[in-house]
Nucleic acid binder design. Structure first.
Length: 435
DNA sequence: GGTTGTTTACTTTTTA
DNA sequence: TAAAAAGTAAACAACC
């Protein structure tokens, strides 16, 4: 039987209560029960630790995160975002000398952030109630954030977990539940591609990356709900066919998948080849200078799919490592942050007929392209402002626990639980208000 | 044995 | 209000 429900909005067992009162309840202290490992240790291979996180592309919350990091050094020292009354670590974090960090390029933000922080402290009688509220981002968004903020544009599952927990204290609790959902999202959504490990990088699990065509998933301007799910057309057709055919293939009705695994989604070998061809076509047809290397015997079928299509995880399975890395040369440089992956992805985005960096002022693509703390922080502010203006799709639904602040809370309520995010985002937000 | 990955089934939430 | 998207639970198997 299926799950017992308990969805996002309901008072599900894992939902942090947004009601007033104690911040206890399901929201445990990040320290208690937290198995979070130091960011610098766990993510050093994937993130730019030499500069802390300041080299990261910054989605909304990341922007402010980098600011703190710049001020106080490795985020690992300031990773308690709890906002618990036991002492806001952010106080020490943001209370430091403004702009003292090399990466901090906006002292105004920091100064006003400190002021805001003090104000938030004064208001914490009700702010505190919303600490650890569920972030307004979907799991798909969180995964996307994590991947896009990694240097190699791909992460292992555990790294994705870590990223999310580092960024959102909410996810330091009930890990089994949301991590299951993360895994489900990765498998279920065509926008995520599984990239097998290479022999020289042994370890558990594969890398996960974004489908090159998934760049416009968040056209609504932020890492919130997508307007439309990204689907690989061919895979969708196959799904329909399989539905129509019943159990045409060896695929049983049971949930076991790994038995047929890498080709589970294909049900037959042919489709896997199609995917490989699609991958080759995607890169070859658009911009990939390496594509010639990708045309191995597995890619010789000569089918011209024409469209940018599926490069699903099975690609790697049906290709050897060299073939795959012909498609994604950056895989060779996962730890050393070869820019080609970014170049490829960026190039792919540009070739996407739907992609237009200027299409939406608050597009996720703008954040990616900007690669700037200020730009990302501005985006947070813009999101919040849009939300306040009732802009659909911006920020969370009023029903959302994220957007259920106290009567006097503005749209920044959520960010108050995330002190780092709160500072930069709120300061910008308020500066936009005051002008 | 724990983690990872896939799939199904169901509920809840959001959007058109 | 229906459809789509998202969230949750669970079963299962492969892998390290």
């Amino acid at each position: 039987m299926g799950g017992s429900g308990g969805g996002l909005g309901g008072p599900g067992p894992g939902m942090a209560p947004v009601t007033g009162g104690s911040s206890a309840g399901p929201c445990m202290s990040p320290a208690a029960g937290s198995t979070v490992t130091p960011l610098s240790a766990s993510m050093s291979n994937s993130f730019n630790t030499s500069q802390g996180l300041s080299g990261m592309t910054s989605p909304p919350c990341m922007a402010s995160m980098t600011s703190l990091n710049s001020i106080n050094g490795p985020l690992a020292n300031n990773r308690d975002f709890s906002g618990h009354s036991g002492g806001l670590p952010l106080n020490s974090g943001l209370g430091g000398p403004a702009g003292s960090g090399p990466g901090l390029n906006n002292t105004t933000i920091t100064d006003s952030a400190s002021a805001l922080l003090q104000r938030a402290r004064a208001d914490k009688t009700y702010r505190r109630s919303y600490t650890h509220a569920k972030p307004p981002y979907s799991y798909i968004s969180l995964i996307t954030m994590a991947i896009q903020n990694s240097q190699a544009k791909m992460l292992t599952l555990s790294e994705i977990y870590q990223f999310i927990m580092d960024l959102f204290p909410y996810y330091r609790q009930n890990q089994q539940r949301w991590q299951n959902s993360i895994r489900h999202s990765l498998s279920f959504n065509d926008c995520f591609l599984k990239v097998p490990r290479t022999p020289d990088k042994p370890g558990k699990g594969s890398f996960w990356t974004l489908h090159p065509d998934s760049g416009n998933m968040f056209e609504n301007g932020c890492y919130l709900r997508r307007q439309k799910r990204f689907k690989c057309e061919k895979r969708e057709i196959l799904r329909q066919q399989q539905k129509a055919n019943g159990n045409h293939s060896s695929n049983s009705s049971s949930g076991s998948s790994s038995a047929n695994s890498p080709s589970v989604k294909h049900q037959d070998g042919h489709q896997s080849h199609q995917d490989v061809n699609s991958a080759a076509n995607t890169l070859n047809g658009s911009m990939d200078p390496y594509s010639s290397h990708a045309h191995s015997h597995h890619l010789q079928r000569g089918e011209s799919l024409g469209d940018s299509d599926c490069i699903k995880s099975e690609v790697g399975h049906h290709m050897d490592a060299h073939q795959l890395h012909g498609l994604y040369p950056a895989l060779h440089h996962h730890a050393s942050s070869h820019p080609s992956m970014q170049h490829i992805l960026a190039g792919q985005l540009k070739t996407d007929p739907h992609f237009n960096p200027s299409h939406h002022p608050f597009s996720i693509n703008s954040i990616i392209a900007a690669n700037s703390e200020a730009a990302a922080a501005s985006k947070v502010a813009a999101d919040m402002k849009l939300y306040e203006m009732g802009y659909p799709g911006a920020y969370a639904s009023p029903i959302s626990p994220m957007a259920a602040p106290g009567p006097n809370d503005g749209p920044t309520a959520y960010y108050h639980h995330h002190p780092v995010a709160a500072s930069a985002a709120a300061s910008i937000y308020h500066s936009t208000q005051s002008v």
